[in-house]
Design a protein around this nucleic acid. Sequence first.
DNA 1: GACGTTTAATTGTCTGACAAATGAAAATTG
DNA 2: CAATTTTCATTTGTCAGACAATTAAACGTC
Lengths: 250, 250
Amino acid sequence: MKIDPNSKIDLSAQIAKAIRDGIIAGTLPVDERLPSEAELADQFAVSRPTVREALKRLAAQSLIRTQRGATGGAFVNRLRFEDAYGQHVTTSTLLLSMNSVSFETACEARFALERACAPLSAKRRTADHLATMRAETHRQAQPGLSDEAFCASDVAFHRALVDAAGNPVLSYQLAGAVEAMQPLMNMITFTARNRATIVEIHTEIANALDVHNACTTDALLCQLADYTESLGKRVFATHNAAKNDGSAEA
Amino acid sequence: MKIDPNSKIDLSAQIAKAIRDGIIAGTLPVDERLPSEAELADQFAVSRPTVREALKRLAAQSLIRTQRGATGGAFVNRLRFEDAYGQHVTTSTLLLSMNSVSFETACEARFALERACAPLSAKRRTADHLATMRAETHRQAQPGLSDEAFCASDVAFHRALVDAAGNPVLSYQLAGAVEAMQPLMNMITFTARNRATIVEIHTEIANALDVHNACTTDALLCQLADYTESLGKRVFATHNAAKNDGSAEA
DNA sequence: GACGTTTAATTGTCTGACAAATGAAAATTG
DNA sequence: CAATTTTCATTTGTCAGACAATTAAACGTC
């Protein structure tokens, strides 16, 4: 890969791209050691700080790891689902907060995705997944629970539901839906929601999964989706009413 | 956010995290200008190269953009779906290639996700989406088409199907499934597949969407999933047979 | 007022240096 | 000879200072 010093693009971005392309193409296999920063600087005919900026870009994407010392250097990282998970959640959260996505759109996407793995979860759920879901449901029924803790427990419940599908690819792809959208919805609807209703649906979902009943699970998720959407509608109606009252008084 | 010079973690990583947290928390709103590199170096009590490494990390995640000149600097970027899309695809591709995901697992996840948006696509597909899908299907029927071009057209077809749901959040979340897994499957099955079979299913999918028939669309996607999986099984059976023969001869 | 020119601010890049970590080789010791 | 300690070379992490390139605002000229 050639580097063009006259390009509009930063040298460090070009170098990062060159190395990234090598990783994607498989030219640089996992755990391969890259040349030292000094050697890379020579190869690309740039200074060491520029090379370092390029390497930091790759490190930010978990594509490489660096190690100091005699046998240290930058190594191609095996990208793990856990590593990608966090980034996916962060990105999804920012996408939602920065792009004025309507509540309905987010809600629709979130439940469509969760319903996608419900049949698999009904088939494959282990005792462990069921135990987690029931423990979280039980926690959600505690009277003194803070809204934050309720939300966290809610996320844990749905995450267990997704993980029950036993498909790591699905779990990863759904991370954004569960861990980014669920808190968003909790934040919007927590004033209007009835915890008992949610706890009841959660309990029934666990029961349906227990007996491997995919149909009922799906129906319950639809019920939860409808309830969430109705909450959202109510909250926004209240907001708008208050806003109109305010402008009328002013 | 405090920076700890004695931490095991790089200063540039700590600084990047501090700024990233500010962006996520909303302390740094979109289009806000960060202090200049020199000012940041002062504030965090580090040198300018260290600050720059931190900023490059953030730039690699599309969280900031930089501009030269008198009124330039680093600005908080509005993370757009298009920007996140590419990264999501890259990450998904690497996850699949680096984690020895079985063909069945990938196939299952891919079709579960696509089926999730089929009902919405059946409801909302525009004439545009239909036209795209039919144009791609027509292209796939051309005799002289290379395998690469067939794969690209295949991706375009499924992308149009997903986009037809009219939900940008869903489109984003499914990017990994369509643009990373579909090529993977094409690469594996291209020796065994029958293009005519795929073209026929694609044609029928477009017809079902045309008349807003969600049920038939879903059934056809299941059919495609089954066909793909059977292809995968056949290919791997052939591989294993060849391998066993080889080891027996050696 | 319109149009060049200068200027100041800011990022991009380079050079050179030193500190810290780390494994390997060499020296030492039993 | 084996085990241990020391030394050392390599590599990343960080710093300081400098200059180039870019850009918009301020200034001056007509």
